[in-house]
Amino acid sequence: MNLKTEANLLKISIFSTIVLAIIGIIFGLLASSSTIIFDSIYGLIDAVMTTLALIVAKLIINSTSKDFVNSRLEKHFTMGFWHLEPIVLGVNGILLISAATYAFINAIDSFLLGGREILFGYAIIITLISIVIELSLGFYIKKANKTINSEFLTLDSISWLISASMSFGYLIAFGFGYFAMNTNLQWITPYIDPTILIIVTILVIPMPLKTVKKALADILLVTPSELKSHVDKVAQNIVNKYGFNSFRAYVARVGRGRQIELYFIVPKSWPPKKLEEWDLLRDEIEKELGKEDPDLWLTIVFTTDFEWAE
């Protein structure tokens, strides 16, 4: 993973979100539109979570460097910071779902109360500005993330596209309302905004669910079946090659980190081996599992006592 690329994209996203949110709040007040104001506050929440994502990304990279061993943080986080990634992703996804759910409930309430009169001109201007910025950033980050493969950027691009889809809904509502003014359809205009918002939120609420599900699986240390199968295959090959009695493998994925514990049961009849020989065997196993991966936390134990592997 290229941290500089990920960090730069997240910084661009944060800056753009804050600027767009400030402009949105101003235009929302001018238009007297609670929808635009809410959308801007939603953006600020997203900016805060993106900032946390950037901090966590830096911590994870720094924790895998040699300099981290002697740092002050290492004394308090000896296991690294991988566990923070799914927490941030989960909270971010839940906040996105919660914000959209709140917008849905708010739209229902507004509809039942007779809608809301707004100044459509100001609303259309800020909506067009929002669509251009949101679509541009959403697709740009998504394209860049094909080579970076960052969960943070995946969620961030989804967030921008969610915002763009909501803005399209607003544009339809505000545009129709603008042209319906001073016509026989003017009585509909107070209901346009809440109706479109209801439709948009129904569509966007499920979008972060996959990310939240994966984050919860990482937090709960659910064993990834694909990774477990790979580890079992490598360990079984080692058992067959060197004649161990058996092995036990414990696997978990925590964010981008992979935590693997392997216990090989050594026959008691084996003659003693030098520590260097065991280390060479560890190196062989590590190479098979991904030696160059800085996000791999690997523990390999050789024992004649089966209870140590349980």
Rank of each mutant, 00 (worst) to 15 (best):
A31C: 07
S32A: 12
S34T: 14
T35C: 06
I36M: 10
I37Q: 07
F38P: 01
F38C: 04
F38K: 04
S40F: 07
I41C: 06
I41A: 05
Y42C: 05
Y42L: 05
Y42F: 14
Y42I: 08
G43S: 11
L44V: 06
I45K: 03
I45N: 09
I45S: 09
D46M: 04
D46A: 10
V48W: 02
L52S: 05
I55R: 02
I55H: 01
I55M: 03
V56A: 08
A57T: 06
A57M: 06
A57V: 05
K58S: 07
K58W: 12
K58Q: 13
L59T: 10
I60L: 04
I61F: 03
N62C: 08
S63Y: 03
S65M: 08
S65K: 12
K66P: 00
K66M: 07
K66F: 09
K66N: 08
K66W: 08
D67R: 11
D67I: 08
L73G: 07
H76I: 14
F77V: 03
T78R: 12
M79A: 12
M79N: 12
M79G: 06
M79Q: 09
G80N: 01
F81K: 02
W82E: 07
W82L: 08
H83F: 09
E85M: 06
E85G: 03
E85C: 07
V88R: 00
L89Q: 11
V91Q: 04
V91G: 05
V91W: 09
N92I: 00
I94Q: 02
I94S: 11
I97M: 15
A99L: 15
A100W: 05
T101D: 14
T101W: 14
T101L: 15
I105C: 13
N106P: 06
N106W: 02
A107I: 06
A107Q: 03
A107N: 05
F111A: 14
L112H: 12
G114E: 13
E117G: 09
E117I: 14
